[in-house]
């Protein structure tokens, strides 16, 4: 007897499956049986993907489920709605991030370690973005200095911050 699945190799695995009272018999070769076995496993455990995990997270997120405003959120640029996004777990275009911001709630924070990018900045707009990041960092440090009563350091930082802010305002950062 040849394998029912591939019809190529001899059937060496024979098994009976009973699903909801219906009995089916299978005669498979070893290779196909293994694949079948894997499929059966997936059927029991359910398919699993990152998207579904994300979708699951969003539905568990009280910030998302409690407010009813999100389903009406829509990205004007590509036309994707928030509920479409919630279903597929993928944005439609870069502008969706802005459009869906109110509905995203803590999702980004939950799947990521924080919601603030600290990595590479494209060189093209590097000047300004890098300066603004530096500014944020210096302000944090300034607060630390004040807390620790290192007022001389704080004063130096304050002056640097002032210069950077002026540069940014003048568009020369």
């Amino acid at each position: 007897m040849l394998c029912e699945e591939c019809g190529e190799r001899p059937a060496t695995v024979h098994f009976t499956e009973i699903v909801q009272g219906r009995k089916s018999e299978f005669h498979l070769c070893e290779a196909c049986a293994r694949e079948k076995g894997a499929q059966a496993y997936h059927m029991v455990s359910g398919p699993f993907s990152v998207n579904q995990l994300l979708t699951g997270l969003m539905h568990m997120d009280p910030a998302v489920t409690e407010s009813s405003a999100e389903p009406t959120l829509r990205c004007d640029h590509c036309g994707m709605t928030f509920s479409q996004f919630a279903q597929v777990g993928r944005f439609g275009c870069p502008r969706c991030y802005q459009a869906f911001a109110p509905g995203l709630g803590g999702l980004l924070k939950r799947v990521q370690s924080s919601d603030q990018h600290v990595g590479k900045i494209p060189r093209r707009r590097g000047g300004h973005a890098a300066a603004r990041r530096e500014l944020t960092n210096m302000k944090h440090k300034l607060q630390e200095c004040v807390m620790e009563e290192r007022f001389e350091d704080a004063a130096a930082l304050r002056d640097k911050i002032r210069v950077l802010e002026q540069q940014l305002a003048a568009g020369t950062g």
């Binding site: 998207n51 777990g89 944005f91 990018h117 973005a129």
Partner: peptide, 11 residues
């Protein structure tokens, strides 16, 4: 985006 970094299809 300055806050979210490089924007990708999947979050």
């Amino acid at each position: 985006d300055e806050q979210k970094g490089y924007l990708t299809a999947c979050p």
